[in-house]
């Protein structure tokens, strides 16, 4: 259960939410995405409640810890279907560009079920970014990625931040995107135990994090 959570993320900012397994990170992300109703409190995305204003969902991109993809369709078909849901024009071109951005043009016509875990994750990232969301919610985006792919995804996220996208990234550890973050919060048993601007010294923060988790 989440209690006393209060957060604001401005355009061009990345909030990292860290915490151990079961802390409530995914629940928080699902509530932010409008997939779950909070028992109390409210969520505003550019002033609108996603649950009462469905069209504002177009402002949000979600990368879940599952891929949201159809295994029997190809990456290109998955992205073109997502483009239809978001009412985008030039769907084929946009799908091609999104796949190129994550380096998967050559696997665009293979069924998703034939792709490796890392490739599926990259297609899922392309899907989350396809409609140019102003808010990006990321659940463990680096899971299953090798070092070059992690670097590529970090570059993609940096470009999104520069374009003014607001991001919330949840992870059970401090991810590769640490240097991009403007704010770090640590969630334990549904409550913030650390909530502050990102410190420069990651190792010192890690030491404090371990102390907080031990308590």
């Amino acid at each position: 259960m989440l209690r006393g959570i209060d957060l604001t993320v401005n355009p061009g900012e990345l909030l990292i939410v860290a915490g151990p397994n079961g802390a409530g990170k995914t629940t928080l992300l699902r509530i932010l995405a409008g997939l779950m109703r909070p028992t109390a409190g409210s969520i505003r995305v550019f002033g609108s409640d996603l649950r009462t204003d469905p069209l504002r969902r177009a402002d949000v991109g979600l990368l879940s810890h599952q891929s949201l993809l159809y295994d029997d369709l190809t990456p290109r078909e998955n992205l073109e279907f997502a483009a239809r849901l978001y009412g985008l024009d030039h769907r084929s071109e946009r799908a091609g560009e999104a796949l190129a951005a994550v380096g998967l043009t050559d696997r665009a016509r293979d069924p998703v079920r034939l792709l490796s875990r890392g490739m599926v994750q990259r297609v899922a990232i392309a899907r989350a970014l396809l409609h140019g969301p102003r808010v990006l919610l990321l659940d463990e985006p680096f899971t299953g990625l090798d070092v070059p792919s992690s670097r590529r995804v970090t570059e993609v996220l940096a470009a999104q931040l520069n374009a003014g996208t607001a991001m919330v990234l949840v992870s059970h550890n401090l991810p590769e995107a640490w240097t991009l973050a403007s704010h770090v919060s640590v969630l334990v048993r549904g409550k913030w135990v650390i909530d502050e601007p990102r410190p420069a010294d990651r190792d010192a923060f890690l030491a404090r994090l371990h102390t907080a988790l031990d308590d």
């Binding site: 469905p54 159809y70 009412g87």
Partner: peptide, 18 residues
């Protein structure tokens, strides 16, 4: 069941569709 695989249903529910 098709939508349960890879939580594809969430992909539909977060889209701006009625």
């Amino acid at each position: 069941a098709l939508e349960r695989e890879n939580a594809a249903l969430d992909g539909l529910l977060v889209a701006p569709i009625p």
